[in-house]
């Protein structure tokens, strides 16, 4: 096997040509964001967009950070509680749906899952109505609630698949020892669940951080998360495009860092989202 793979290495040098070209395509927007971001105000112009900066300057990043920093904090205030609560709920749901199947559980699960695919345009009108009636419209907590609720399908799915792989005999052994549903969860399942928690936390963190639709509808100006503020900045005629580039990069940093350090778990979440293991 290894000998064969080594042979492949030698004979397939050409594959690096298309791979490198595609790599350039994927890096292009990144390059433009950073290349523009690091130029000084004097050096920035659309006509010299592809030229490298003569010296590294943080002008654009500083300017973008001044505008976006309150929104970055808002995003964190939304995303951290949303991801935390989602993970806990998903874990409980996944546990019950995989290990304590109650009558009708096989119907409940697909009904729950469909919620993950709906176009949110089909629920926005009632959502705005209900959120303002319960006094959460415009607030950070309203958006947290929405992310938690619409995250239930995917978080449940990831945990259910994860727990399904835990042998039933483990649970049986615990129940023989007199453990109830809660003790089995607390003592047996939960200590095994860290990887699933990482997957779900990352998934919810990323999708809540990147959300625009719910945020633009449900938060008032001072509670805008970074995506809404960035879009607003990009639509304004006053803020120069170079600052927009730096701002885009700032808005992408948290999820990019997660991706760089925990990409494996991120990928697992994406695969589950397509109902693939």
């Amino acid at each position: 096997m290894t000998a064969q793979t080594a042979g492949v290495h030698r004979s397939r040098k050409w594959v690096y040509i298309p791979l490198t070209m595609m790599a350039l395509f994927y890096l292009l927007p990144m390059f433009v964001m950073l290349n523009t971001g690091f130029k000084s105000f004097e050096e920035v112009s659309l006509a010299t967009m592809w030229e490298l900066p003569s010296a590294l300057s943080l002008d654009n990043f500083t300017a973008a950070w001044e505008i976006l920093s309150p929104n970055v904090w808002n995003s964190l205030k939304i995303v951290i509680p949303a991801a935390t609560i989602s993970s806990i709920l998903g874990s409980i749901n996944g546990y019950v749906l995989s290990k304590w199947k109650f009558p009708g559980a096989n119907i409940v699960f697909p009904v729950l899952l469909f919620g993950m695919f709906i176009p949110y345009q089909s629920i926005l009108i009632p959502l705005v109505d209900v959120m303002s009636r319960i006094g959460l419209a415009g607030s950070i907590w309203g958006l947290v609630l929405v992310h938690v609720i619409y995250g239930i399908p995917i978080t449940t799915l990831i945990f259910r698949n994860y727990y399904a792989a835990v042998p039933d005999s483990l649970i049986e052994a615990a129940t023989v020892d007199g453990a109830g549903i809660w003790q089995v969860y607390w003592r047996v399942l939960l200590p095994l669940s860290i990887p699933a928690f990482v997957v779900v936390y990352i998934w919810q963190f990323t999708s809540a951080w990147n959300d625009f639709l719910f945020a633009v509808l449900l938060t008032s100006t001072q509670n805008w998360p970074v995506t809404v503020a960035l879009n607003n900045m990009a639509g304004s005629q006053i803020i120069a495009w170079n600052v927009q580039m730096a701002g885009s990069f700032l808005a992408a940093v948290p999820t990019l860092l997660i991706y760089i350090f925990l990409g494996r778990y991120f990928l697992r979440g994406m695969m589950t989202g397509a109902l693939k293991e």
């Binding site: 790599a23 951080w209 580039m245 992408a252 999820t255 990409g263």
Partner: peptide, 17 residues
């Protein structure tokens, strides 16, 4: 990893760039 990283980024960022 390189081909996959855009998945981690918001459509808003992608759109602006």
């Amino acid at each position: 990893s390189l081909f996959l990283f855009p998945m981690a980024i918001s459509f808003i960022v992608t759109g602006v760039v």
